[in-house]
């Protein structure tokens, strides 16, 4: 076990006259080098759990340890900084900035972080896009790219700051089967070859079958965690 993220009794309830429980009492450990999928019917709280794990949303109960550090109660700025430096998100709809070319989209996290010199940022942007099989498309704006290409740009952008944890919210949900297979392959490679932790929410059971750990959710709870790796 090599945990990067540990959730203990994690819960999220929308306050209101009739409180809505999105996520309830989730205990979950995410490992490095492991491709984890979260599956379950629509509205079961998969995405809500992912936002909690990705520190985009704050839990109303329980605690979250990221790289051994308790993240609950930290300021929004610290969480933003953590997302910037350690996390990468890929969403169902590619979510690229429309005014920026593929290359510029990939450079956004690096430029915001400001660690690398401009030419290094550029070189890394080209390299990441090349890794995703997008040579020659660097200058194209999102509207000139196909759905699969955009999603791969989004993955390249998620990887820009070399994150330890990559989170996908239905990353293949909007793609045809060929594109989908390429994206899944890319995500598996991130976990297996680069040792990152990859967590994807999906309703595609074929993808879930290809993952190392499958987390099944129902009504905001984790019903079952299956380790599908051989020999475990």
């Amino acid at each position: 076990m090599n945990p990067i993220l540990e959730a203990h009794g994690l819960g999220r309830t929308l306050a209101g006259e009739r409180p809505v429980v999105l996520v309830h009492d989730v205990d979950l450990t995410i490992e490095r080098g492991c491709f984890t999928t979260i599956v379950g019917p629509s509205g079961c709280g998969k995405s809500s759990l992912l936002y909690l794990l990705g520190m985009l949303d704050r839990p109303t109960a329980g605690s979250l340890l990221f790289e051994g550090r308790d993240m609950s109660g930290l300021s929004g700025d610290v969480l933003a900084q953590t997302r910037l430096a350690r996390l990468g998100f890929v969403f169902q709809f590619h979510f690229l900035l429309p005014e920026f070319s593929a290359l510029e989209n990939v450079m956004i996290p690096m430029r915001r972080r400001g660690r690398l010199a401009p030419d290094e940022v550029r070189a890394r942007g080209f390299a990441l896009l090349a890794e995703m099989g997008l040579e020659g498309k660097e200058r194209k704006t999102p509207d000139k790219l196909s759905g699969g290409e955009r999603q791969r740009v989004a993955i390249a952008r998620a990887l820009a700051n070399d994150p330890a944890l990559v989170l996908g919210d239905e990353p293949t949900g909007n793609l045809d089967s060929v594109s989908s297979a390429r994206v899944v392959e890319a995500l598996r490679r991130l976990a297996h070859e680069e040792g990152r932790a990859v967590v994807c929410v999906t309703h595609d059971l074929d993808i879930a079958a290809l993952s190392d750990v499958r987390v099944e959710m129902l009504d905001g709870r984790v019903e079952k965690v299956t380790d599908q790796r051989a020999g475990r």
Partner: peptide, 8 residues
């Protein structure tokens, strides 16, 4: 998007 990337 920018917030998810890590903009404060």
């Amino acid at each position: 998007i920018l917030r998810s990337i890590g903009f404060s």
